[in-house]
Amino acid sequence: MSRFDNSGDDTAPTRLIRRDGASSGGNNANRDDPTRKLDYQTESTMTGVNRGATADPAASAAQDSPKTVLFRPSEEQDAPPAGDATQPIVAWLVVKDGPGRGRAVSMSYGLNKIGRNPDQAVSLDFGDTKISRSHHAAIEYDPKLRAFYLSKGENLVYLNGDRVGSGQEHALNSGDKIELGDTILQFVAFCGPDFDWND
Results as ranks from 00 to 15, higher is better:
Thr42Trp: 07
Glu43Phe: 03
Glu43Thr: 13
Ser44Arg: 10
Met46Thr: 14
Met46Glu: 06
Met46Arg: 08
Met46Ala: 13
Met46His: 03
Thr47Met: 01
Val49Pro: 01
Val49Leu: 00
Val49Tyr: 06
Asn50Arg: 06
Arg51Thr: 15
Ala53Asn: 04
Ala53Glu: 10
Thr54Cys: 02
Ala55Gln: 01
Ala55Glu: 03
Asp56Thr: 15
Pro57Gln: 04
Pro57Val: 13
Ala58Leu: 12
Ala58Val: 15
Ala58Thr: 14
Ala59Ser: 07
Ala59His: 01
Ser60Gln: 14
Ala61Arg: 14
Ala62Trp: 08
Asp64Gly: 04
Ser65Leu: 02
Lys67Ser: 09
Thr68Phe: 07
Thr68Met: 05
Leu70Tyr: 13
Leu70Met: 07
Phe71Gly: 10
Phe71Val: 15
Phe71Asp: 09
Arg72Ser: 12
Arg72Lys: 13
Arg72Trp: 11
Pro73Ile: 13
Ser74Ile: 01
Ser74Gln: 11
Ser74Ala: 11
Glu75Gln: 09
Glu75Gly: 13
Glu76Ala: 14
Asp78Glu: 06
Pro80Met: 05
Pro80Asp: 03
Pro80Cys: 03
Pro81His: 04
Pro81Tyr: 07
Pro81Lys: 07
Ala82Met: 04
Asp84Trp: 06
Asp84Cys: 08
Ala85Lys: 06
Ala85His: 10
Ala85Gly: 05
Thr86Cys: 00
Thr86Ser: 01
Thr86Gln: 06
Thr86Leu: 03
Gln87Cys: 00
Gln87Glu: 14
Pro88Leu: 03
Val90Glu: 02
Ala91Leu: 00
Ala91Asn: 01
Leu93Gly: 09
Val94Leu: 00
Val94Gly: 01
Val94Ser: 02
Val94His: 06
Asp97His: 07
Asp97Glu: 13
Gly98Leu: 06
Pro99Tyr: 05
Gly100Val: 14
Gly100Ser: 04
Gly100Lys: 02
Arg101Tyr: 03
Gly102Asp: 04
Arg103Leu: 02
Ala104Leu: 00
Ala104Pro: 06
Ser106Asn: 11
Ser106Leu: 11
Met107Asn: 08
Met107Asp: 04
Met107Val: 11
Met107Gln: 03
Ser108Phe: 14
Ser108Leu: 02
Ser108Asp: 08
Ser108Lys: 08
Tyr109Pro: 01
Leu111Met: 15
Leu111Gly: 07
Asn112Gln: 10
Lys113Ser: 14
Ile114Gly: 05
Gly115Arg: 00
Arg116Trp: 09
Asn117Gly: 14
Asn117Pro: 03
Pro118Asp: 08
Pro118Tyr: 08
Gln120Cys: 15
Gln120Asp: 05
Ala121Gln: 11
Ala121Phe: 08
Val122Cys: 07
Val122Gln: 02
Ser123Glu: 10
Ser123Val: 11
Leu124His: 05
Leu124Tyr: 04
Asp125Thr: 14
Gly127Trp: 12
Gly127Ile: 15
Asp128Trp: 12
Asp128Glu: 05
Asp128Met: 09
Thr129Tyr: 09
Lys130Asp: 12
Ile131Lys: 01
Ser132Ile: 10
Ser132Tyr: 12
Arg133Ala: 12
His135Glu: 14
His136Ser: 07
His136Asp: 06
Ala137Lys: 04
Ile139Trp: 07
Ile139Leu: 08
Ile139Asp: 01
Glu140Pro: 09
Asp142Leu: 13
Lys144Trp: 12
Leu145Lys: 15
Arg146Asp: 02
Ala147Lys: 14
Ala147Tyr: 00
Phe148Ala: 04
Phe148Pro: 12
Phe148Gln: 01
Phe148Asn: 03
Tyr149Met: 01
Leu150Ser: 02
Ser151Ala: 10
Ser151Met: 12
Gly153Glu: 10
